[in-house]
Amino acid sequence: METHIIIWIVVSLCAGCLAVLELNPVTDPVIGLVGGSVLLEIKPPGPLGGMIWMFGPEDMPVVSWAGSEPEIDLDYKNRVTLNTKTGSLQLKPVSLNDSGVYTFEGTVFVSAEVQPFKGSVTVTVHTLIGTVIVNPNPEQPIENQALNLTCEVFGSKTVSSRLWLKDGQPLSASDRITLSADNSTVSFNPVLLSDNGEYQCKAKNPVIEVASPGYILEVNYGPEQASITGPDSAAEGSSVTFTCSAQSLPPCNYTWYFNGADAVQGSQYKIASVSNADSGSYTCVAWNSVTGRNTSVVKEFNVTESGSGSGSGCLKAEIAQIAIGTLSGIALLLCLSA
C-alpha cells in the first residue's frame, strides 16, 4: 500500500508541472480465453519512473511499482507480471471474473522532465465453445407444416455470431424461410420436400468457431398416388395377388377391405384359389403413422367360369358343325326313300 501512495503523490506533483499524457494501449480491447493469458501492452514515450494498474469502477489495485520490487495485490498473487521497463501487464491464468476495464497511471522521464501519463484498456475473457447442436421442432417434420431448427451452443456464455449452412452453402432466407434476430433459429413456414438436405450451424465467439454435426432434414409426407396392381379378372380356381403401393415417408401401413368389410393387413392381398364369392370391390387404405394422413384406392375384380374362354368357344363350334352334318344326312336318306 505504501508504494501505491508514493506513486499517487508523484503523479499528483507532476500533474502540476506537465499536462497528463493520455496514453493509448497497443491493443484495445484485449481478448482472452479462460485458463490462458492476456497482455495489456503499453509503450510510454520514455524511461519508466513509476507505475500502477487498477481494475474496475472502484479502481481496485492490481500491481504498483516505484523503482523497487513490484507490489502485487493479494487477489493477483502468482498471476501478475509487470514489465518495469514499459509498464505492460500480463495476467495468467485468466478467468471470466478478469473481464472488465483496467486503468493505469505512471510517470516517465522525457527530456529530463517527469511526464505523468494515464490510460485504460478493456479485457474480455471467453470460454471455449464446447458443442454446437441443431435441434428440430417438431422432431419429425411434416410437409406443409411449420418447422424450427435451433442452433444450441454449449460451453460458452458468449456467442458473437451464428451462420447456417445447407449442403455446405450459406442458407438463403426468403418469405418462407426466416432467421431470428440472433440467427439462433431458422423457421420454415411451411417446410417443403425441397427443403430436404444437410443443415449445419457454425457458432463463433472472439476466440473460436465451432460447427455442429450435420443434421439431415427428411420431411415426412404422404401417402400420395396410391395404386393397386393385379388382374381385373381371373378364372375360377386360379391364384391371384393384388399389391397396393403409395408414395410416403415413412412407408405406409396398408389395410384391405373386400366389399366394405375389413379383410387383411399388409401391402399384398393373396387369394390361393378364387371362386365366384371373390368377385367384387377390393379397397386398399394407405395410412402414414407420422403425418396422420391416409388415402384409398379401389379395384373391381371379376371371377369367370372355369374353362371359359377362346378354347371352349372352338369346342362349341365343332359340336354345332357335327350336329348340322348329322341333320343333313338324315334329310338325304328321307329324300331317297321317297
Rank of each mutant, 00 (worst) to 15 (best):
Q247C: 00
T255W: 03
T229K: 09
N276G: 02
T243E: 10
F258A: 05
T241D: 03
Q268D: 14
C244E: 00
I228W: 01
A235W: 03
G230I: 09
A235F: 02
S239E: 14
Y257A: 06
T241L: 11
I271M: 10
Y257R: 05
A263S: 14
S239W: 08
S275T: 15
G237N: 10
P250M: 13
S227D: 09
S227E: 15
A246R: 09
E236A: 10
F242I: 08
S248Q: 06
K270C: 07
G260V: 12
S227I: 11
D232W: 02
A235H: 03
V274M: 02
I271R: 03
L249R: 15
C244M: 12
G260Q: 09
Y254F: 15
W256S: 00
K270N: 13
F258D: 01
Y269E: 03
S245W: 03
V240I: 14
A246P: 02
S275V: 14
F258W: 11
Q265I: 12
F258L: 10
I271F: 09
G237S: 09
T255P: 00
S267N: 13
S233Q: 14
P231G: 08
D278Y: 02
V274T: 02
P251I: 04
F258T: 11
L249C: 02
S273V: 06
A235N: 07
E236D: 07
S227F: 10
D278I: 04
W256M: 07
S248I: 04
I271A: 04
S245F: 08
A277Y: 13
G266L: 11
S233V: 01
S238Q: 13
A272P: 02
F242S: 01
D262R: 07
S248Y: 07
T229G: 05
S273H: 11
Y254Q: 02
T255D: 04
W256Q: 03
C252W: 03
Y269D: 01
C252D: 07
F258I: 12
D262G: 04
P231K: 08
W256T: 05
C244K: 08
G260M: 07
S275K: 15
T241Y: 00
P250L: 12
G230N: 03
L249E: 09
Y269S: 06
Q265G: 07
K270T: 15
A234P: 03
G260H: 06
Q265R: 11
I271E: 05
S233C: 03
T243N: 06
V264T: 15
D232L: 14
E236T: 10
C244H: 01
N276M: 12
I271T: 09
Y254E: 06
T243L: 07
A246M: 09
N276I: 04
Q265F: 13
L249T: 05
N259C: 04
W256G: 01
S273R: 14
A261V: 15
D278T: 08
T255C: 00
V274W: 05
G237M: 14
S279M: 06
A246F: 05
G237P: 11
A246E: 10
T241K: 09
Q247S: 13
S267R: 08
A277R: 13
Q247V: 05
P251M: 10
D262Y: 04
E236L: 11
F242K: 01
A272Q: 14
V274P: 00
C244I: 12
N276K: 12
A277G: 12
S245P: 01
N253R: 15
G260N: 07
V264G: 00
S238Y: 06
